[in-house]
Each structure stands twice: as structure tokens, then as C-alpha cells.
Amino acid sequence: MTTATSSRVWWPICVLSAAFLLWRAAVPGGPGMARVYVKPAPAEADASSAGWLAARPDESGAVVSPARTAGVWVAALLTLAIFSFLYKDNPAYRFAEAVMVGVSAAYFMVAGFWDGLVPKLFIPLSQMEWGTVGEVGRSLLTLTPLVLGMMLLWRLLPRGGWIARWPLAFIVGTYAGIRLLSFLEADFVSQIRNTIVPLVVRDTDGLGFDLWASVRNGLMLGGVLSCLAYFFFSMDHRGWYGRVARVGVWYLMITFGASFAFTVMGRIALLASRLEFLFDDWLWLIDPLGKRPPPGL
């Protein structure tokens, strides 16, 4: 589609959409859209719930929140800007992407500051005492992460960037130690333990033979062993060993197929939730959860 043809198609669509939004949002007595109602939080509410809580429009004391209503508009326009990438790369998508990068970088920085630096560094620093030998030792331990942190930030300076290798080595070494233990304990040992199951399963009364459970356990054990045989490259995958490894490949293909299906379902669920946001919270065209009183009431 040429640019001129594209403009001829998209301009009428944009104008009609804007007129539709204007009618829903601004016409008095119209259907309305995107308004968010809040009510004062009860006095016993904890600090994380602030002064106002989301409310239904028909609740007593509910008022429109201009900030949250603007937020729904911002969220809807950003959502549409990102969906526009399905057509082609365009300035609206790039704008939304730039906003996402900036906000997410700052989000993690702020979270790191309030959840990491303040409770684990600044508060202990403010409580340091230097009176006795023990207190001096504890204070030096408290100062160590500050020094390492400063060394890490040295990387931003034009010279002496190698100084950041020390704290980086600390991070890598600590992470390696934590991962080594957690993977060996949670994945390696526990997976092997769960795979060691009886191949002949008795009934619950202990007298009969549970064929289905036995077959299940046999298929499970055989599957794990055959997959591990495929992963073991120190032996040539030939002869009987090759046939076992081939069965392992079949198991793995079924596993990948199931994983693919779950990935698709997860993405479709996310897509549905975004569409639900657009049609429910923004446009008020649907109301599956009964968030608003029916029109006319």
C-alpha cells in the first residue's frame, strides 16, 4: 500500500474514531467512558492503600478521580500505540516504547533504592557506633557494601573502570554460590528423588495391582532416562543406545509441544486482558465483572 493510499484509508478511520470517542466521553447524558470512581479510604486502612480507594459509581461517597481517569486514557492510548506495530513500525509505537524504557529503568532504580539501599545500607549506616572493638568491627562490615557500591559506580568515570571488577566479581561469585546450591538441591536432587518411584504399584488396600499407576510410573522413569541418554554425548548415539536416545527425543518433542501450547495460551490470555481493558475500563462497551450499574439505572 503506497503512502498516499494509506493516508486515504487511515485518516477517515482516525476522524471517525475521534468522533466516536468524543461522543461517548463528552456528550452530556451520553453513555460515558473511562471514568474512574474513588471513595475515601476507611481510617483503619494501611498506609499502602492511600487516602482513596477504587469504588463503583453507585456507591455512596463515590466521586470521579481526575488523575485515575486521565490514567485510563494514557494507558489506553499507550496500548493502542503498541498495537499499532502490528500494522508497521511507526512514531506512535516508538513513542510508547521510549516511555516504557524510561519508566521501567526508573522503576527498578527506585525499587532498588527504597527496598535495597535504604533498609540494608542507609539505616544500618545511620546506626553505626564506634565505641568498642566489636562495634568497630560491625561498623566496618556495614561500610563494606558502601565501598563496593562506590567502586561499582566508578565504572561511569572515564578512567580506572577496572576498579568496578572487584564488586562485579563479588556479585558473580555470590550468585554462582547461591545458584550452585539452589540448582543442585531444588532441581538435581529433588528431581531425581521424585523420579525414583515404584514400578509395580499396589492398590490402596495393598492387595491388588494398580496397572495404570504402574504404567504411568514406568513411562515416567523410562522417559527421564531416555532423555538423559540423549543429553549424554560421551557415547555415540548408535545401536541400542541410539534407539533409547531417539525415544528421548520424542519425549522432548512432546515436552516442547506442550510448552509451546502453554506459551501461546499465556500470550492469548494477556492479549485478552488488554482487549478487556480497552473495551471494559476505557470504552465501557462491555462489563463482564459488573463494575458499573446497568445503563439507564
Partner: peptide, 24 residues
């Protein structure tokens, strides 16, 4: 526990490093 605490502090410093780098 001490090393774990230092690790968390340094991870927060790493976020600061990443943020400043992005800004620069």
C-alpha cells in the same frame, strides 16, 4: 546472611549504574 545482604545492596547499586548509564 552478611554476604547475602551485601549482595542485595550491590544489586541495588547495579540498578543505579544501569539508570545513570541509560541517562548518559
Amino acid at each position: 546472611d552478611t554476604i547475602g545482604q551485601w549482595f542485595e545492596v550491590l544489586a541495588s547499586f547495579a540498578f543505579v549504574l544501569g539508570g545513570v548509564n541509560l541517562a548518559m
